[in-house]
Simulated scan of single mutants.
Amino acid sequence: MVEGKINEIHSWAAMKPGLAVEPYTYKPRPVGEHDVEIKIKYNGICGSDIHAIKNDWGNSTYPIVTGHEIVGKVITVGEKVMKFKEGDLVGVGGHIHSCLRNDCNACSRDLDPHCSECMFVYGSKYPDGQPTCGGFADAIRVEDNYVHKIPESLDPVYVPPLMCAGLTVFTPMLRKGVKKGDRVGVVGIGGLGHLAIQFASALGAEVVAFSHSSNKREQSLELGASKFVDTSNKDEADTVRRTLNYLFVTSSGESNQYNEYISWMDFEGQIVLLALPKGSMTFHPGEFIQSEVSISGSLIGGTKYADKTLEFAAKHNIHPMIERFPLSKINEALEYVDSGKPRYRVVLESD
């Protein structure tokens, strides 16, 4: 074992369901031979953090330290860590361990977030029973396979949302094979959607942005969309029927909207869910037979795709639109995110 430079980690934890967090100090586990100790500088707030703090999914255990869009500098490395050294600027996302074995049904196909040994940065437990703690803190210790070097051309304050929102939208684009000339739709111009437009456009696709509010029209076009559709306007929606090769759904919406989404797709088009709709979806089998459209989903990308996301963002100057808060005002920031007001992601900066 290597002696860490931090004996106590000062964090912000939720002690019960709600929205408030409070100062919480805990003793980190020892620095293992493959661990990297990171002094945190920036951390994004994602909707998943809000859900976990509130226990919306019914599986939160308190106290819980959330935060999974982490950027900081390496201050200690384990004995067998070769990829990183003290002073490196790195990022950490929501996924911090999988077996990565060649005989693993998930990891062997770069689907490591589906591995039976998968651990997330919070809400999971180490083999010794200690809970994992996220990035709303001054430091974190993470296995080196799930630490990612940040390209020099990326301004680090813009990187946290790339570790989750960016990774979430870019991974299925790569896995599904989005390419130049494809017609790609993006539903929901928010934290995920505004990045999806940029990634798809940089891949060479013709991007159609869909929103129920026309006030995002100009911004969507500036981000790289070639067409904007106000979904509340039937005439506008009719102009895209049977035209899309891919549709990435980045907002939850209502489950009955998916029948409309199918009508926008070209034959053999693919709809990919990146957000959970409210309620259950109901379809007549004939809709799939007649359209030959498929519907699938995508979880956050694995370690391979995290590196690809950062490299591609650096090459194509892709960055999120952010609003910044000091970490000391985290409760104010959480309420702001919960209100749905940010355009489009909030980043906390350590004091």
Rank of each mutant, 00 (worst) to 15 (best):
H194T: 07
R242T: 12
G18H: 10
N245R: 03
P131V: 02
V293E: 07
L327M: 15
P320D: 09
L111M: 15
F283H: 10
P131Q: 02
H51A: 14
P326E: 04
S48V: 01
N55K: 06
I70W: 04
Y305P: 04
P277I: 11
D138K: 01
G58A: 12
S251W: 08
G297Q: 08
F325K: 06
P30L: 07
I271N: 02
H10N: 13
V71N: 06
V31Y: 01
S226T: 01
L174G: 01
V36L: 07
E22W: 10
I271Y: 11
H114E: 15
D338N: 14
H148Q: 01
I318C: 03
G279K: 11
A205L: 06
R345G: 07
Y126H: 09
G134Y: 01
K176A: 08
A314P: 00
L167Y: 06
V142H: 14
C115N: 14
V142W: 04
I40K: 02
H212T: 13
E33R: 09
E260T: 11
L111D: 13
L223T: 00
K179A: 12
K179M: 08
T66E: 08
W57H: 09
K85F: 05
H284Y: 10
M163C: 06
E323R: 01
H51K: 13
G188N: 00
S296G: 14
Q219P: 00
M82P: 03
A196H: 04
E236V: 03
F210H: 00
L89Y: 04
S263R: 08
C115T: 13
H97Y: 14
N233K: 00
V272I: 14
S213T: 14
G181Y: 01
Y305H: 11
Y344S: 11
K329Q: 11
V184S: 00
H95M: 07
V178C: 10
V65A: 05
K149W: 09
L162A: 11
M173A: 09
F84T: 13
L19S: 02
H284E: 14
P172D: 04
A275P: 08
S108G: 04
M281G: 02
E222G: 01
C99I: 00
H51T: 11
V159N: 00
L89W: 05
G44E: 00
N55P: 08
Y336G: 07
V272N: 13
I70Y: 05
L348D: 08
G129T: 02
Y42N: 02
L334H: 12
H212M: 10
E349D: 02
K180Y: 00
A225P: 01
S116W: 08
A202W: 03
H316L: 04
H95E: 07
L327E: 01
Y158A: 08
S251T: 15
C133Y: 14
H10R: 12
E254H: 15
